[in-house]
Design a protein around this nucleic acid. Structure first.
Lengths: 227, 227
DNA sequence: TTCTGCTGTAAACCTCTGTTAAATAGAGGT
DNA sequence: ACCTCTATTTAACAGAGGTTTACAGCAGAA
């Protein structure tokens, strides 16, 4: 359930929108001016903030500025018609999107969904970080560390190690390694996998003392041992 | 699904653009001259019309005039190089925007989205701003910042970086980069992508200290690292 | 043990990428 | 038309990365 902070002084709109958001499976919190809105935004963690531009006490621009000074929560601005200048200011300050008012709750929720889709990857998304023993691997950064030390791998070496890490503790056949790591089926006398594994091992050995973390399983493939 | 009418006699561009529009979730209809284009526009209801200026039978200006006589459908004009006068006329006649040719499908779709955002704020949700790590990109304004510093990119460099940003954390093949960023399929010995990437990297390196944010994945493509 | 097929690794070889510079193509101005 | 400025593509070469080769060492079977 996504927490949404709704900052707007239009009581009627807020009431309607809050109801609509609840109905659509969100968990909305409400603030009626920029000051208390910003306070809420900073004191709690929200998945998204809906922020009106025109408001008493502290307008949306200043509220956004206050929020952005400390947090990076996605913000969707609600702008009244013809506030074209504000639109640019809003964008420069780092609002993620804007909806021109007047608009229906349906339109707003569509935007909210779009932003959340971007900011929080769906469930089927892969983990950001995979750790096996002393080895930690970040697929989206193509980065590997062995107990804090960065391993300087080439891209193919990284691909192969990634496959092994994802199947840690199980034997991975050369055929699978070739398919997933090199992107082609294993040919009859192809020794590439062996050669790459050899160099990966050498790079790991620089930090691992003695133990062999990548084991060869005769005629079966390779396996990354998990502690 | 937004219905888009595409009126242009450039068969190659139309083919590519149609495909691209479908891919991006639009429902394109095609006409190859002004006369049949205007007929389509008047006989059916579209959310937007893409209209080339230079065409056989009836040019874009006259087609626009014919359409505007009866309908108020948003129109995006495609103008060839140096048709400066035509631009103004086009806008005076009530075109909503124009794109100077040559341009990539990507650029056109960005404009289409911008217009639809104004005319029907709901469905075509597409955030105004995309942030990946220290990098923030505004597709509609064709503007990029690296932690507050504006990156002065050329048009092609921007296109390529935009593609990478939209696929942040995943590898994008040179073939896709060429198609989406340069608007043409990758040829056998084409090194353009590499050269552009090199200069984008240099511009980023001015602000990034040491780390490589655009990684090369040997034989696969490039990947923008995601924090 | 001895034979056979598999694996480890270094080195040769070849392909791909990074980068700079030169050539080409456009756009704007005179 | 011609020149100028800028963006993009092509060309060229150095260097990094990947594959193949070659040979030594190993594992398992007879």
């Amino acid at each position: 359930m996504n927490k949404v902070l709704l900052i707007d002084d239009d009581v009627e709109l807020v009431g309607m929108l809050k109801e609509y958001l609840e109905q659509e499976g969100f968990d909305p919190t409400v603030a009626y001016d920029g000051e208390s809105g910003a306070a809420h935004a900073l004191s709690d963690t929200y998945d998204l903030i809906l922020l009106d531009v025109m408001m008493p006490k502290m307008n949306g621009i200043d509220a956004l500025r206050a929020i952005r000074a400390e947090k990076n929560t996605p913000v969707l601005m609600l702008t009244a018609k013809g506030e074209d200048a504000d639109r640019i200011v809003g964008l420069e300050l780092g609002a993620d999107d804007y909806v021109p008012k007047p608009c229906t709750p349906r339109e707003i929720v569509a935007r909210v969904r779009a932003i959340l889709r971007r900011t929080q990857p769906a469930d089927n998304a892969q983990p950001v970080q995979i750790t096996v023993g002393a080895l930690t691997l970040w697929p989206e950064q193509r980065r590997v560390e062995w107990s804090g030390n960065v391993l300087e791998l080439t891209s193919t070496e990284f691909n192969l190690l990634e496959v092994l890490v994802r199947h840690a503790g199980r034997v991975v056949s050369k055929s699978d390694l070739s398919l997933q790591g090199l992107g082609r089926p294993l040919a009859r006398f192809d020794r590439s996998i062996d050669v790459h594994l050899s160099s990966i091992r050498q790079k790991i050995d620089a930090y691992a003392n003695g133990r062999h973390y990548i084991q060869t399983v005769y005629r079966m493939g390779y396996q990354l041992v998990r502690e």
